[in-house]
Computed example of a mutant assay.
Amino acid sequence: MTERLSVDTGERLTTVDVTDRVAAAVPDGANGVCTAFVRHTTAALVVQENESGLRGDIEGFLADLVPDEGHAHDRIDDNADSHLRATVLGPDVSVPVTDGDLELGTWQSILLVECDGPRSREVAVAVTD
């Protein structure tokens, strides 16, 4: 079973906590592994602490790591930086599931990292045993 979630973002480089929405897509009583996968090449998913300062640090880190300009792909649609930033992080996370609950640690959340917003993003959520 796969459920698709729509996530709207408001800025070019930002993070959105999708933990509750992913958890709601897990069937009651399920056991196994939940995989969340963002269906875009300029966004990513990470498991990290949902704290505003840290979220800003993630955004700043990515901006510092990859310059906004000067990439070959920019001649096509001027967003190579977004592709490169998403490449560093990756499109998916996997979290164990026990009795329908995500086995996240106390400070862990699932964050969508938007690298080319604002946009409407789609996250596919599947649970396998």
Rank of each mutant, 00 (worst) to 15 (best):
L45C: 03
P118R: 03
H83D: 11
V33Y: 12
R85E: 06
E122D: 15
A43V: 13
A24E: 05
H71W: 15
I58R: 06
L62K: 03
V16L: 02
A43I: 14
L111W: 01
A80E: 11
G56S: 14
D64C: 11
I110F: 00
D129G: 15
D116V: 00
L13Y: 12
G70R: 01
G70H: 02
R55N: 14
V16N: 02
P27C: 09
A25H: 02
A25M: 01
M1P: 10
E69W: 09
S120P: 00
V38A: 08
A24F: 00
A23K: 05
D101F: 06
D57K: 09
H83Y: 03
E103H: 05
A86W: 03
T14C: 14
L54F: 15
T35M: 11
R75T: 11
G90S: 05
S109P: 01
G10T: 13
A23T: 07
G100A: 09
D57V: 08
C34I: 02
N50D: 15
R39P: 00
S109G: 06
L84W: 00
C34D: 04
V38S: 00
T19K: 09
R119L: 01
G53K: 10
L65R: 09
L65W: 13
M1N: 13
A23D: 05
V46C: 10
E59W: 06
D20S: 13
A126L: 10
V7D: 01
L89R: 05
D64S: 15
E49I: 07
A30I: 05
I58N: 12
A86E: 08
N79T: 07
N31S: 15
V16P: 09
E122K: 00
L62R: 06
E69V: 07
T14A: 15
E51A: 12
R12I: 12
T19V: 08
V93I: 14
V47Y: 08
G60E: 13
D8P: 09
V88N: 08
V93D: 02
A80Q: 04
H71C: 06
D116Y: 01
N79Q: 11
T9M: 07
A72F: 14
R121V: 06
N50K: 09
D28K: 04
A80K: 00
V127S: 02
V113F: 02
T9L: 06
G10Y: 10
E114T: 06
V125Y: 05
R39F: 02
E3C: 08
D101E: 15
R12Y: 07
S94N: 11
G100V: 02
E11H: 14
G105C: 01
L5V: 12
I58A: 02
R55C: 14
A86V: 09
L84D: 05
L104W: 06
V127P: 06
S82A: 15
G10Q: 05
L54S: 11
L89D: 09
D99G: 03
V88T: 11
D101P: 00
L84S: 04
L13K: 05
D81S: 14
F37D: 09
G60H: 09
V22F: 00
L112Y: 05
Q48R: 13
H71P: 04
E11L: 10
V26A: 06
P96R: 11
M1R: 12
I76M: 13
D57F: 12
L111R: 02
D28Q: 13
E59Q: 15
I76G: 03
S82W: 01
R85N: 07
G117A: 07
N79G: 08
Q108Y: 04
E122R: 08
D64M: 10
T19Y: 05
